[in-house]
Design a protein around this nucleic acid. Sequence first.
DNA 1: TCAGTATTTAGAAAAATTTCTAAATACTGA
DNA 2: TCAGTATTTAGAAATTTTTCTAAATACTGA
Lengths: 94, 94
Amino acid sequence: MGFAETFKALSDPVRRDILVLLKDGRLPAGEIGSHFNMTGATISYHLGILKNAGLVFESREKNFIYYELNTSVVEEVMLWLSELKGENYHVKEE
Amino acid sequence: MGFAETFKALSDPVRRDILVLLKDGRLPAGEIGSHFNMTGATISYHLGILKNAGLVFESREKNFIYYELNTSVVEEVMLWLSELKGENYHVKEE
DNA sequence: TCAGTATTTAGAAAAATTTCTAAATACTGA
DNA sequence: TCAGTATTTAGAAATTTTTCTAAATACTGA
């Protein structure tokens, strides 16, 4: 669950689209899948990779499994990149 | 040369190590290669991917090809991530 | 309990990536 | 010009990734 997994997870366009989809809140796996022209099994595979990378977490409720963006890991990636640039960055408060 | 290439380029640990190596300034291909236990051909392959992704540029001088980090593309990736988080970020001046 | 819905797992095929060796290109300086 | 150095390109093997179908698991509500 280090940077290796996280960057690998971010390298696929389907997985990035999933993250964008989750930007506004959590969604169940089926709802996520309905936005793609792929089988549920494939979406499940991608969700597994995102989860393993720490980029999302899941929560079970009723008959659904909800996925939610983990912004703190996104933040960590940004920090790594900002160190690469050799500059600091600052999250705007409020 | 969109995000697809850039994220793919960032997904390999060797390529990320190359970028870190270039953090402090440009280096010729051979010098970069000397830090890895791989053939020059393989390093050349990775440099080509980084160049194609816009993450580095090259400049020829004497008998060497120098590679240099392109921080503006790193910045673009950070912006994409910050939009994902739904927050702004701010580069510290000075 | 049980039929139905939501999702994942297993296994396999197809495609993409990483690495190597060998050969080619490009430039330097004598 | 030419031998030498730096780097890339070509082609192939090994590995990893993505996707599918079919089957399994898990939970719901009647």
